[in-house]
Design a protein around this nucleic acid. Structure first.
Length: 418
RNA sequence: GCCGCGAUGGGGUAGCUUGGUCAUCCUGUGGGACUGUGGAUCCCUAGACUCGCGUUCAAAUCGCGAUCGCGGCCCCA
């Protein structure tokens, strides 16, 4: 027996129905927000990701040399490929350019609950500028998508790295020097951040203020004691989101996302039920394109961990029903088999999901099968009924049976569908 | 890459401590009782000790290693 590779999954029919259901739900919400879908290759030049995240990530991705000696890797995320695509081919589209995507990503990491080596990411980017409206649009899209899934227990936390950065800058720690400190603060490793800040020449007062700031969270008025551009900006973003009708959002200045290319608003969503791997969404405003050799353009985007979102929904017991077969066609005997084929074909052309007996089983077994696969109706094709051009339609839930003419069958089943 | 726990038919399990009949039971699959009517019941059939090495007269059971999964670290979605 050949096992599937570590950290990968097979998805059975019911699982795929669920996955496709949520995938198309999210897709239609993106379309409703005026985003358009793109798709990029599943593998890229390794350089794309090392440029974005540093050489260290090679340890965590599927990277290899192809037969032409090129450094290739399976994509670990989708923001970098989309920005690459933008620089390569989409720079002349009207802005803001609003894109979304869905697809598998790969990471070479130790699998555990909610973490796989192949996982699916659904995400969106708005490319073009940096305004509160744009950031609010993106956060609003993420919030709408999660809301639509019916997920109950999750928190959307929004911060702005400008607030911490300016505090550090005031204390004389600016630019790249601030990065290692921000990374520690992101993980709430104060014991490690403090010596770094001391080493950078910051006063005890300054250090304390920085640490206190990362612990600020709650409704927007927790910002009232702060001032500066970033604070005003964040308030504007919240104001717009209020007008969009979102209420379940909170400020959390501890959301730092310690990566160099984030420039402004940053946000994360987590579902506490998931344990260690609880983050289901992350994003923010960033500036990446110039790193890849393009013009400098501001963007805001996010990625949703599709698998984790489904796991969270499953834990809440709110994964939906299975898709049901509308009609199962049973020929009563040898003599009506070909007529049953005709009827099945007719139903399928008429948009009714239909299946028929392929195993030449007797009636009793066929009913058991129809029940087991959850068919709504069984169409009984027998000689007696055919004499009047009709078939018997049995409703599997109620057990009631109705004679329906073959011509009227599609509209009968179509109405019964509701 | 690190620490800990685990792995028995498709799914769920008993057996493992204290090695010793044909490996337990439930469910699901296929067939039959039921040659024009399901969800019940009964019968039959097929189906498993993750893999390798070792200890032993004898290993599902004990030891080592690998693989995979789970909880966490790292990292991150």
């Amino acid at each position: 027996m050949i096992q599937r590779p570590r950290g990968t999954r097979d998805f059975g029919p019911s699982e795929m129905e669920t996955r496709r259901y949520f995938e198309s739900m999210m897709r239609s919400i993106c379309l409703a927000h005026g985003f358009r879908e793109v798709q990029t290759p599943t593998f890229e030049h390794t350089e794309l990701f090392t440029t974005k995240s540093g050489p260290g990530i090679i340890d965590e991705i599927y990277a290899f040399k192809d037969k032409g000696d090129r450094e290739i890797c399976l994509r670990p995320e989708l923001t970098a490929p989309v920005i690459r695509f933008f620089i390569n081919d989409l720079t002349n589209y009207p802005r803001p350019l609003k894109l979304f995507y869905f697809g598998p990503c790969f990471r070479y990491e130790r699998p555990q609950a909610g973490r796989f080596r192949e996982f699916y990411q659904f995400g969106a980017e708005v490319i073009g500028s940096s305004t509160p409206e744009m950031d609010a649009e993106v956060i609003g899209l993420a919030a709408s998508m999660l809301e639509a899934t019916g997920l109950q227990d999750y928190r959307i936390r929004i911060g702005h790295i400008g607030i911490l950065r300016s505090l550090l800058a005031e204390a004389g720690v600016a630019g790249d020097a601030a990065l290692p400190i921000l990374q520690k603060l992101d993980k709430k490793l104060y014991d490690e951040a403090t010596p770094l800040m001391k080493g950078a020449g910051m006063s005890d007062d300054g250090i304390e203020k920085v640490i206190r700031t990362t612990q600020i969270s709650g409704p927007i008025d927790v910002l009232k004691d702060y001032e500066g551009e970033a604070k005003v900006y964040l308030e504007e973003v919240f104001d717009i989101l209020q007008h969009y009708g979102f209420r379940n959002l909170q400020v959390d200045l501890g959301v730092v996302r310690g990566l160099a290319y984030y420039t402004g608003v940053v946000f994360e969503v987590d579902a506490p039920k998931l344990g260690a791997e609880k983050q289901i969404c992350g994003g923010g405003a960033y500036s990446l394109s110039e790193l890849f050799g393009g013009e400098k353009v501001h963007s805001t985007g996010f990625g949703i961990g599709f698998d984790r979102t489904l796991i969270a929904l499953d834990k809440e017991g709110s994964l939906p029903m299975k898709v049901r077969l509308q009609a199962y066609v049973v020929p009563v005997g040898e003599s009506t088999r070909s007529k049953a084929c005709e009827i099945t074909a007719m139903l399928r052309k008429g948009g009714i999901s239909a299946d028929m007996d392929l195993m030449r089983r007797n009636m009793g077994k066929n009913f058991k099968y129809a029940d087991a696969v959850g068919a709504e109706k069984v169409i009984i094709v027998g000689e007696k009924e055919l004499e009047t051009g009709s078939v018997n339609v049995r409703d599997m839930a109620s057990g009631t049976q109705t004679m329906v003419s073959i011509e009227g069958l599609i509209s009968y089943l179509g109405h019964a569908k509701s």
